[in-house]
């Protein structure tokens, strides 16, 4: 991946970001900084606000308080084009695998000829050539998630958000996703990913963000998080106890 744009979006800074919905605080005010080329895993029990935090970072939801600031004063359009998100259940359009990738490139204004080249390259990168012309909606869960990754890959994002991308997959497919995370990372993409899987976090993370009940409890480098967590709640979570 050769990025021509001189300015980087990163680091991403959240200041006092909070989210309330119908009188309920779903995310308490928090500060957060995401660096270039990091691999940050967001952990925490169900309902902790992991997905919410990622959607706010990605720009799908606007925080009800605080600011989300990208570096370099990029235009909203540039910000949008330099990031991508992969959801727990991939949303694929009712067309072929290849056409899904092309559609995403078209949506971001990539010229038609380059679209075809980049789509082919992404399909190949994720070993999807054999099923490129199959309808995306009839692919297996693992294939669908790989296609979602290929689609994200084609967009050459500077930062990739992944919301529990392996939660519904079998071990072989999980392995493929983790390899993809490495591939993205080696190409300079910053990874922000949520997971329930402690082993996965150990394998992939540089650092861990730990959320409980909409509160950022702890952020630590991965080794410290697992071996000497600073909070009692994180310690309990790592032990496998219930946390709320």
């Amino acid at each position: 991946m050769n990025r021509a744009e001189p300015l980087s979006l990163l680091p991403l800074e959240l200041e006092g970001v909070a989210f309330r919905h119908r009188g309920q605080t779903l995310l308490h005010p928090l500060d957060l900084r995401l660096e270039r080329n990091g691999k940050t895993l967001i952990m925490g029990p169900n309902g902790a606000g992991k997905s919410l935090l990622m959607r706010i970072c990605h720009g799908l939801l606007a925080p009800t308080a605080g600011t989300v600031r990208w570096c370099g004063g990029a235009t909203p359009d540039t910000i949008r084009r330099r990031q991508a998100m992969v959801f727990q259940r991939p949303v694929l359009l009712r067309r072929s695998a290849l056409a899904n990738v092309r559609h995403a490139l078209g949506a971001q204004g990539v010229p038609r000829r380059e679209r075809a080249r980049r789509a082919d390259e992404a399909i190949e990168q994720f070993g999807l050539q054999a099923i490129a012309h199959r309808p995306a909606r009839v692919l297996s869960g693992g294939e669908q998630q790989r296609l979602a990754l290929a689609r994200a890959w084609a967009l050459r994002p500077e930062i990739l958000f992944m919301d529990e991308p392996t939660a519904a997959l079998d071990p072989a497919a999980i392995r493929a996703v983790e390899e993809a995370v490495d591939t993205f990372h080696h190409n300079g993409t910053c990874i922000v990913m949520s997971t329930h899987d402690l082993g996965q976090a150990r394998r992939l993370a540089d650092d861990v963000i730990f959320l409980v009940n909409g509160t950022l409890v702890e952020r630590s480098p991965v080794q410290q998080f697992f071996e000497a967590p600073r909070s009692a709640q994180a310690a309990a979570f790592v032990r496998g106890d219930l946390v709320w």
Binding site: G59, L60, R80, A84, M85, F87, A107, Q108, L155
Partner: peptide, 12 residues
């Protein structure tokens, strides 16, 4: 309802 987030994510 199904496509909304994905399309928004793609900047559509």
């Amino acid at each position: 309802g199904e496509y909304r987030e994905q399309l928004q994510s793609l900047g559509v």
